[in-house]
Structure formats: C-alpha cells, structure tokens
C-alpha cells in the first residue's frame, strides 16, 4: 500500500514536471516564441483558463497522468524500480515517457543556460579570447615575491584550518558512529542530532561560510580559515565516523569481555583500527583545503585568492597569469606530496 502510494506520488511529480516543461518551455518559449525574460513566473496561459492559476492546472494534469500510469501500469516509477516485464507494452510506453522527460530537460537546460555558439566563436569574441590567453601566457614575473608570500599564507591557512578541525572532528566522529551509539536511547539521540547538524553544515559550501565569516570577523585570512575549519569539521566527522562504522567489531568484543570501561573499549578496540585511515583522510583534507583556500580568497578570505581577485578587477591579465601559474604549481605539488604520504601510510 505504501509502495503504491509512493509510486503514485512520484509519478505525479514526474508528470507535473513534464507538463510544466511542455507548456512553459515548448509552448511559450519555442512555439509561441515569447521573448525572454524567462517565463517561469507570471500567468502565461491567461488565454486558456482565466480563473485557475497555471500551477493548479499543471498539478491537475499531472495527477491525471499519474492516475493513468497507475491504472494501466505504464508507470515511470515502476520502470525505474525494475517492476515492468521486459517485453510488455507498459514498459515500452514508460520508456517513451522517460525519454521524453529527458529530452525536455535537455532542451530546457539549453534555453536556461542561454547557450550560444555565436557568443563563443564570432570573430570579435575570438579576438577577445586571443587577448586574454596571450596575456595569461606571458605572466608578469615582477609580482612573484608578493604571489609567493600570498600562496604561503594560503597554504598555512589551509593547514591551520585542518589542524584546528582535527581534534574536534576526532572526538565528534565517535559520537557520530552508529555502531558505538546505538546501545542506549540517549546516545542514539545524540548520534541523530550530530548527524543532522553535520549534514546541514556540510551542505553549506565553504564559499558561503567565508562570506558569513568575513562579515563576522572582517576580511582577511582569519575568516577564510574559520570557513575552511567549519567545513573541514563536518566533512571529517562524516569520513571518520564512516570509517569507525566499518571496523571489525571483534577486538571491541574482546576488550569489552575483559571488563574494561567504555572509554578503554574505544581506545583499545576501535582507535588502533582507524588511526591510519584517519591520517590519510586528514592529509587529503589539507590538500583539498589548499585548493578551497584559493577560491575562498576570491570573496575576501585572504591569501592568493584575494590577490587574484584584486588583479582580475583591474583587468591586469599578465599579473593574473602569474598568479594562476603559482596556484597551479602549488596545487600540483600538494597533490603529489599528499598522494605520496598517503601511499606510504597504507
């Protein structure tokens, strides 16, 4: 019953989605060729039914489609769940509906992103491309000392973010590991809360954190470090705790059976199994953080990114070229070094 209902609901979502695209994109944009701005909002079909708002209409048509799919069995959801017999007509129809939805999505994407080959390859545009590439490829070496100072700031910023996130992530990861927390009601509650919080903070990009912290503690490397640290904690807690959930429970049982205390069970039964993967994750995080730190600099988070942003605003492309070169070199070196260290650990 629940399965049928969820199938009906998902079919309804899919049908409504198709109807919206068919009307707003295919009918209004392509066939009636209404000019942009784009017609997602506003009532475009006033001519069809003046009293009912468009979206209600879409929902109703979608519901009709979902009901038909439900009755005949030619349901997209059933197809995706692999419930339709290989050669049935229901499967063929569902396949057609599915490919229609896919092509509609592609057409919509094309229109929404305003893809235009003339914008890219007209002679005027090609000349502009030539200008920037030739500038970038002849970097201005006189600012090399500043660039090196800035990238050092970035690397240290990334290091501090990782180092400060490490102890917090380590402790929290045990509280976010289901196999350690499922025994009691309270620990299970804590586990759930922690999972919700870290999932939420992780879904906020470091760039957004950087914007928040530049308002909080003013522009500079410090807010950049804070932004990376918050993101690193939530990412490491996830990676660490998944590693903890993956351990062999045998040693834990063995330590618990000696009459050891819970902390001893974790220290001797769990920690030895995870130190190496934890180290490896952490070094990889530092590597990722160096890349992210350059991006975060663009919004005022300090280091080489801030420098890049300044020269880009002034359209000094030779200088930008040098900065890009320095970033690429350092990222490549970090990547290589961290890969080597992680290899050596395994």
């Amino acid at each position: 019953m629940r399965k049928r209902l969820s199938q009906l609901f998902l079919d309804w979502l899919a049908c409504t989605y198709g109807v919206v695209l068919l009307h707003r994109i295919v009918w209004l944009e392509v066939i009636s060729a209404r000019p942009l701005p784009f017609a997602w909002a506003g009532s475009g079909s006033a001519t069809i039914l003046t009293t009912v708002p468009d979206w209600v209409l879409y929902a109703i048509v979608g519901a009709v489609g979902a009901s038909i799919a439900g009755f005949t069995g030619a349901s997209l959801v059933a197809l995706l769940r692999g419930e339709l017999a290989p050669n049935s007509w229901q499967r063929r129809i569902a396949l057609h509906v599915g490919s229609l939805l896919l092509s509609l999505t592609f057409v919509t994407g094309w229109i929404v992103t305003k893809i235009s080959l003339t914008d890219m390859f007209s002679s005027e545009r090609l000349r502009a491309a030539g200008r920037i590439f030739s500038s970038l490829l002849t970097p201005e070496f006189s600012i090399l000392p500043q660039a090196i100072a800035a990238i050092i700031e970035t690397v240290y910023l990334a290091f501090m973010a990782t180092a400060l996130a490490l102890p917090a992530s380590f402790v929290l990861s045990f509280l976010a590991a289901r196999n350690l927390m499922r025994e009691h009601q309270w620990t299970r509650l804590l586990y759930t809360l922690l999972r919700i919080v870290t999932n939420f903070t992780r879904s906020i990009e470091p760039l957004v954190w950087a914007v928040i912290f530049t308002v909080w503690v003013k522009v500079g490397p410090f807010p950049g470090m804070l932004a990376l640290m918050v993101h690193t904690i939530s990412s490491l807690v996830k990676q660490y705790s998944e590693q903890i959930e993956d351990i062999d429970p045998g040693p834990m049982e063995a330590i618990a059976s000696t009459g050891a205390r819970p902390l001893q069970v974790v220290w001797f039964g769990v920690v030895p199994q995870i130190v190496i993967p934890f180290l490896s994750f952490t070094i990889y995080r530092w590597d990722i953080n160096v890349r992210m730190a350059t991006i975060i600099g663009l919004v005022g988070g300090g280091g080489i990114g801030t420098m890049l942003n300044q020269y880009q605003m002034l359209a000094q492309w030779h200088e930008v070229g040098l900065i890009v070169l320095v970033i690429a070199l350092v990222v490549w070196v970090m990547d290589y070094v961290s890969a080597r260290i992680r290899e050596a650990l395994l």
Binding site: G250, P251, A254
Partner: peptide, 27 residues
C-alpha cells in the same frame, strides 16, 4: 571473572604481544 577467546583471536594487531596480554587486566 570470565575470560573469552574467539575464533578470530581478536588481538590488537598494532600493539605488542605483551601489551595485548596486559589488556586482559584493563578492568
């Protein structure tokens, strides 16, 4: 008061033999 041994031994591989034996006294 109850010792236990297992099919998979369940020693802590990264520790020395002596340290593993001492773990029996953790309580």
């Amino acid at each position: 008061q109850i010792g236990m041994i297992f099919q998979q031994f369940n020693l802590i591989g990264r520790y020395s033999v002596l340290q593993n034996v001492l773990m029996g006294a953790l309580g």
